[in-house]
């Protein structure tokens, strides 16, 4: 029973990490209709900047505080140089451009910081753990991470649903041509959304730096998971991204933890082992295919 609780918490935590990265992307994708494959690379840059700034200042919180404006600046530079010229273009051109950016950023990061994985120490205030079950400490930092993710989710919910900017963002996700015609400066709105997305990617990168290794290409594998989350949730929907992320996190973690045991009950051990080995990594893709089969526009499609 304790194991189930801990594994649920683990799944929640993975979901929160995925949500932090997905939230920014789903907004950019939904509101601006922009396919930003380089979002994962921006997340990686966030992690690297955090590792570098925390090392430089010797203080986790100061480093974290500096990382956010730095990733925002990096994102806005990309926007001004490249993305701005690709709005309202064939999404395939956006894919090509942002794919090129991934190649460049991955290689650039390796050139600047080297290929070795680097790491960040857990801040002293959040080091240590609580014993949730005998023999296992649940690291406080992970609990804090869950808290931070929930706080971000709540904040985004407030901004999107209860502010003027949020209203425009929602309107943009539904019909950007219409709100442009209504005299809203769509360029400025896009800049706000994109800045928010870039900052969230950077924040996610910085927050995971103490538990995951910071290495070149770390954003690429996450990118696919994040797209899975967004599509399950429904493009452009923060609520969808949140629930999609939790669903993916929980299914993946619980499936890994208890799936093999369940299979053992159903078939002979060697067949179960073979099936388990091929099924577990497929779980989230099965989930996505299943969701799209039942709801072809995700769980929370934005009304258009």
């Amino acid at each position: 029973m304790a194991l189930l609780l801990v594994q649920t918490l683990n799944g929640l935590q993975l979901g929160i990490i995925l949500f932090l990265i997905s939230a920014g992307l789903t907004l950019v994708f939904g509101v601006m209709n922009f396919v930003n494959l380089a979002h994962g690379a921006q997340y990686m840059v966030g992690a690297y900047l955090a590792a570098w700034l925390i090392g430089l200042t010797g203080n986790f919180w100061l480093g974290l505080a500096l990382t956010l404006p730095a990733t925002l600046a990096f994102g806005l530079a990309l926007e001004a140089l490249i993305y701005r010229h690709l709005y309202n273009r064939d999404p395939l051109d956006q894919i090509l451009a942002t794919f090129g950016l991934i190649l460049f950023i991955d290689e650039g990061v390796k050139t600047i910081w080297g290929a070795e994985p680097i790491s960040v120490d857990t801040p002293a205030a959040l080091a240590g753990g609580v014993a949730l079950m005998p023999g296992l400490l649940y690291p406080i930092y992970r609990l804090a991470l869950i808290g931070a993710g929930l706080a971000v989710a709540a904040l985004l919910y407030l901004i999107v649903n209860h502010t003027r900017v949020g209203m425009r963002v929602r309107a943009g996700a539904s019909n950007s041509a219409m709100i442009s015609a209504l005299g809203i400066d769509i360029g400025r709105l896009f800049l706000i959304v994109f800045g928010l997305g870039a900052t969230l990617a950077g924040l996610a990168g910085a927050l995971v730096a103490p538990i995951l290794s910071v290495e070149p290409g770390m954003g690429d594998s996450v990118l696919i998971l994040v797209f899975v989350v967004i599509v399950i949730g429904g493009v452009g929907s923060i609520r969808g991204a949140f629930l999609g992320a939790l669903l993916v996190g929980l299914i993946d973690t619980l499936g890994r933890a208890f799936g093999p045991a369940l299979l053992d009950l159903a078939m002979n051990p060697s067949a179960a082992s073979q099936t388990g080995r091929s099924l577990t990594p497929m779980l989230i893709y099965l989930l996505m295919a299943g969701v799209l089969f039942v709801r072809p526009s995700g769980l929370f499609p934005v009304k258009r």
Partner: peptide, 16 residues
Amino acid sequence: PLGQLDFSAELAKIAA
């Protein structure tokens, strides 16, 4: 899975 980032599920199993 190859490239897995988070091992908390496995660690809980080890503890159990």
